[in-house]
Simulated scan of single mutants.
Amino acid sequence: MSLKLNELTSLGWTSFFAEQLDENDANLIPARISEVRRDVVMALSADGVVDLITPPDMSVSELAVGDWVLARSENRVERVLERRTRINRRAAGHDARSQLIAANVDVLFVTTSCNADFNAARLERYLVMAASAGCVPVLVLTKADLEEAAPYIEQAQELQLGLAVVALNAKNPDAVAQLMEHWQAGETAALLGSSGVGKSTLTNALTGVVDGAPLTAAIREDDAKGRHTTTTRNLYPALNGRWVIDTPGMRELQLLDAQDGIGAVFADLEELSAQCKFRNCAHGGEPGCAIGAAIKIGDLSEDRLTRWQKLTQEDALNTETVHEARSRGKATTRYQRRTQEEAASRKGKHKKRR
């Protein structure tokens, strides 16, 4: 991608970031991270694309696509500006750590398709992630030309009160206009969802196809899945002064620090729970349970209750586990530092005796 930008505002720079600067930053260059690699990051500045390295005390894993950083003239990151929004999850696998997905995203297009990929439990996880991050969620139903979209739209609207739902054909020129109704000039959007649902096809359309190179691969008609073409997260300039982040499909999405997001997506259950007779109601058949009463008369499905409870328990466990791991890491670092200082002190005393 080759860019020459004259103003930071065209990259998404706003007063929120400008207000974080002080007189000590006069010689530093603001830049926005467009890709995170193994040992360097690609970034966009007012003068174009730059490769940046991180200082010894900063890992590239601490940066996310969409971040604003201040860099020195020798192309080294000096500091990361506070994020307006932050999308993260518990890292896949057994590692008890938080993984950054993207930063400073305004609109999150949660993307699924009108076929077997539609999964209420997984979509609720994405919506919780969006709410926790502070992004505006929009649920995008692709392949609406291949299946009757109405049933999927109805199911999608039941996932969160007031949720915007868009059904489209990602290859239709009208798809761009449909998404831009929810996405203003100067804002950054990100597309999240499973592999093969059309995220990269939409990115092609929204960007006018970056450098003329298609980002998508063919869809296998027998199982409605696509080859996993996006392998890294990238920030691209979109049409009409917008920005878009394309992401790989996620095989695992474990929530972390998502209590507020769960409350937003399951606001109906939170409200009902407050009406239960007992404050510690477990909603398992206790007398005076408002949620149980709603299920009994058909206003609420038992599956939705189960998903709410599962996400709440999972988030609490993951959050506690990661915070404990951080505490152990800090304690280990303090111990190592103290041990090194004591060794240096003993070495100094030994030299004096000699």
Rank of each mutant, 00 (worst) to 15 (best):
L255P: 07
V138K: 13
N172P: 07
R86I: 04
R334C: 01
N240V: 00
R97S: 14
P173I: 00
V107I: 08
L127V: 11
G186C: 07
R97N: 12
Q254C: 07
G298T: 02
L253Q: 09
V265L: 12
T85A: 00
P30D: 06
G263M: 06
M180A: 06
V165Q: 14
L317A: 15
A177P: 04
S98V: 13
H228S: 07
A150V: 10
G198S: 00
I53K: 15
K225W: 04
A344S: 06
D106G: 04
M1T: 01
C114E: 09
L269D: 10
R220I: 09
R233G: 00
E19L: 03
S15A: 13
I153H: 14
A218V: 06
A120V: 09
P173N: 00
T232R: 08
R38I: 14
G208M: 07
G261L: 08
M250S: 09
A167S: 15
E314K: 05
E7M: 06
G196L: 02
D25R: 09
L192Q: 02
F266E: 10
A264S: 02
L8P: 06
D39M: 11
R353K: 14
S15T: 15
T216S: 09
D211V: 05
T203W: 00
S273M: 12
M1I: 01
P55C: 09
G66V: 01
V105C: 04
R242S: 05
W308N: 12
T332K: 14
